[in-house]
C-alpha cells in the first residue's frame, strides 16, 4: 500500500533551511545504525548461516526432491496469483480512477482490507468456506473437489494476501493522469480497448511493472496464510517458506537458511529492480507517491 516510489531529488544545501553539519552527521549516523541493526543484520545472518558449512552443504539443500517440489509449487502459485492480481488491479484502477461514482471510497477501503487482516485469519477464512466442516464442504466432498490442503487453496490464500498490491499502486497513478488523453483517442475513433493499449498502458507501464515485482515477492514469501491451508504434505503442498520452517524443525539449519537465502535473494533482486526502475523512470513513478 505504501510501496511508494520516491524520486530522490538532490538536496540543496541552503544554510537557513537545513540543520548544522554536526546535527546532520549525527542524524545520518543514527538512521544508518538503526537500519543496519534492524534490517540489514537479519539479512546478513541468513546468508552467513546458509554458508556456515561451505558451498557443498549449501548446494546440497537444493538437491533434495522436497526442496525442488517446494520451488515448483511456489513458482506455480506465483504464476497464477500474480497475473490474477494484475488483471484485477488494472480493472479496479480503471473503474476507480477513470470514473466518478457513489461508494468509491468504500470500495477502495474494501480493496485495502486484506492488508490489515492477519495472515492467520486469511488462511482461516478459506478453511471456513472450503473445509469439510465449512460452508461448501459437503458439496465439495460430494463432487470430489479438493480446495484446501491442495494447490487451489494455497493459490486462493496467496491471492488474498496480495490482493491490493497492484490496484493500490495503479489507482493514484491513473488518477494523476486523468482522462483527457483517452478521451482524445476515443474522439479520434479509437476503440476503448485500443485506447487502453496505446494510451493508458504506456503511461502506467513502469508503475505496473513495479507493483508486479512487489506482488510477486510477497506471493512467493507468504507464510502465515499458506501455513493454515497447506496441510504440510511433503513434496506436494509445501511452499518455499513452509519448507524453510520444516527444515528448521528438522534441525537442518544450514539447509533451512540456504532455502531462506533463496527467498532473501529474491527480495534483494526485487529491491534492486525496484530501485533501478525508480532511478530510470522517476518521473513516471512519482505520481504514485500520492496516496489515495
Amino acid at each position: 500500500m505504501s510501496e511508494i516510489a520516491t524520486d530522490l531529488p538532490r538536496p540543496q544545501a541552503a544554510s537557513v533551511v537545513t540543520e548544522g553539519g554536526l546535527v546532520r552527521g549525527l542524524l545520518v549516523t543514527v538512521a544508518i545504525v538503526f537500519l543496519a541493526l534492524f534490517l540489514v543484520l537479519p539479512l546478513v545472518t541468513v546468508f552467513v548461516q546458509a554458508f556456515a558449512k561451505g558451498w557443498d552443504a549449501y548446494l546440497a539443500a537444493f538437491r533434495e526432491p522436497d526442496a525442488l517440489s517446494a520451488i515448483r509449487l511456489t513458482l506455480i502459485t506465483a504464476a497464477i496469483a500474480v497475473p490474477f492480481n494484475l488483471v484485477f488491479g488494472i480493472a479496479a484502477s480503471w473503474a476507480i480512477a477513470k470514473f466518478e461514482f457513489t461508494g468509491k471510497n468504500l470500495l477502495v477501503t474494501l480493496i485495502d482490507l486484506p492488508f490489515s487482516v492477519s495472515p492467520v485469519v486469511s488462511g482461516l477464512i478459506y478453511v471456513l468456506v472450503f473445509g469439510s466442516q465449512g460452508l461448501l464442504g459437503p458439496w465439495l466432498i460430494e463432487h470430489d473437489i479438493q480446495i484446501i490442503f491442495a494447490l487451489p487453496g494455497i493459490v486462493l490464500a496467496t491471492i488474498f494476501v496480495t490482493f491490493p498490491f497492484v490496484a493500490r499502486q495503479l489507482i493514484p497513478l491513473m488518477q494523476e493522469q486523468g482522462t483527457a488523453e483517452e478521451e482524445a483517442a476515443l474522439t479520434l475513433g479509437a476503440s476503448g480497448w485500443h485506447a487502453f493499449r496505446t494510451v493508458t498502458l504506456p503511461n502506467i507501464r513502469w508503475g505496473l511493472l513495479y507493483s508486479v515485482l512487489l506482488c510477486n515477492a510477497r506471493a512467493m514469501g507468504e507464510f502465515g496464510a499458506v501455513s493454515v491451508v497447506s496441510g504440510h504434505i511433503r513434496g506436494l503442498t509445501n511452499t518455499l517458506p513452509l519448507h524453510v520452517e520444516i527444515l528448521y524443525n528438522e534441525y537442518n539449519f544450514v539447509a533451512s537458511f540456504a532455502v531462506a537465502s533463496l527467498l532473501a535473494g529474491l527480495a534483494l533482486v526485487t529491491l534492486g529492480l525496484k530501485s533501478l526502475l525508480e532511478w530510470r523512470y522517476a518521473g513516471d513513478l512519482a505520481a504514485s507517491g500520492r496516496r489515495h
Binding site: 469439510s132 479438493q146 504440510h232 504434505i233 511433503r234 503442498t237
Partner: peptide, 20 residues
C-alpha cells in the same frame, strides 16, 4: 507414501477439515 508432520493437535485439525 507421502507424509505430513506438525503438532499433533493441528494435524488432527487438518484431517477434520478435509486433508485426504
Amino acid at each position: 507414501v507421502r507424509a505430513s508432520h506438525g503438532g499433533s493437535g493441528s494435524q488432527a485439525r487438518t484431517v477434520i477439515d478435509g486433508i485426504p
